[in-house]
């Protein structure tokens, strides 16, 4: 099995603030880490490799410092890592990010299975995985919570829907995004760190990709634009009713309707 895991470096906390002076995120002083949901994706790949042999590769797009999470993936057991890094990739939205990753994937080889985390903790879109699958013209299943069987031709997985569990079989090559808790991620090992200290990380820039049109990458290739960011207004005003004076049940009923917990 040739497995690829897509990973991303994210800020170490979601408690980020906006600089009132220029309206952009304050990123300085915030440590980075691997997107926590990607650990489940990587663990899934490593577990499959243990049972079916093969190679586990990781790919990420980001600044040169994102190398750190490929090192971390090596310490968990990944075999090879690729870093898509180029100033021209900056400012990518869902479309441009998924396109760049798909171009990188085409460059480095062909894979039976691509695994992504269910979402990142910074962008929170949960939509890049499915878009990569579309660019590569392969089927995908999102929110996979368990892998039932794997054969040469494909796999059967359990998919976590809001109110049901769907068992779906899918043909290789394919992409899945995995839910939290599919497997417990292993810890990075010191032994592996020593072993992989000198292992190369392959950097890819736009010049290495099949599509060289700069209009398809970064800000140029991103149809969506962020007009502004702001801190949410959580100054909800408090309301207290006295059941002896007002009908408390009636007041609550209205609140629950307005908040859409009851439909009429």
């Amino acid at each position: 099995m040739n497995i690829l895991v897509c990973i991303k470096q994210v800020p170490g906390t979601t408690k980020v603030e906006i600089d009132p002076a220029n309206g952009v995120l304050r990123r300085d002083g915030i440590a980075s880490k691997m997107n926590p949901y990607d650990l489940y994706a990587l663990e899934t790949a490593l577990t499959i490799r243990e049972q079916h042999d093969g190679l586990v590769s990781v790919i990420t797009m980001g600044p040169p410092q994102a190398e750190a999470i490929i090192r971390e993936a090596y310490m968990m057991g990944a075999d090879q890592g690729f870093l898509l890094t180029d100033r021209r990739f900056a400012g990518s939205d869902v479309l441009a990010t998924s396109y760049t990753l798909s171009q990188g994937i085409r460059t480095i080889g062909s894979f039976d299975l691509i695994i992504c985390g269910k979402q990142t903790t910074d962008g929170d879109t949960a939509q890049v995985g499915a878009a990569i699958a579309e660019w590569l013209d392969i089927p995908h299943v999102t929110w996979v919570r368990a892998i039932r069987t794997i054969t040469e031709r494909g796999m059967t997985v359990e998919k976590n829907m809001a109110e049901s569990i769907e068992t779906v079989s899918i043909q290789f090559p394919c992409l899945i995004t995995v839910d939290k808790d599919i497997y417990m991620p292993r810890l990075p090992s010191y032994k592996k760190m020593i072993e992989t200290n000198n292992r190369t990380i392959t950097s890819l820039s736009l010049d290495d990709l099949p599509d060289q049109d700069e209009n398809h990458y970064g800000l140029n290739g991103s149809p969506t634009q962020v007009e502004r960011i702001f801190q949410p207004d959580d100054s909800r005003e408090q309301v207290i009713w006295d059941d002896a004076m007002d009908d408390g049940a009636d007041k609550l009923f209205t609140v629950l309707i307005n908040e859409k917990y009851i439909r009429t």
Binding site: A126, Q127, A130, A131, W135, P223, T224
Partner: peptide
């Protein structure tokens, strides 16, 4: 959220999640 990215990608257009 599984369906929208595939269709938006086909039209090479913006998708806001």
């Amino acid at each position: 959220r599984s369906l929208a990215p595939r269709v938006a990608t086909r039209f090479r257009t913006g998708l806001t999640a």
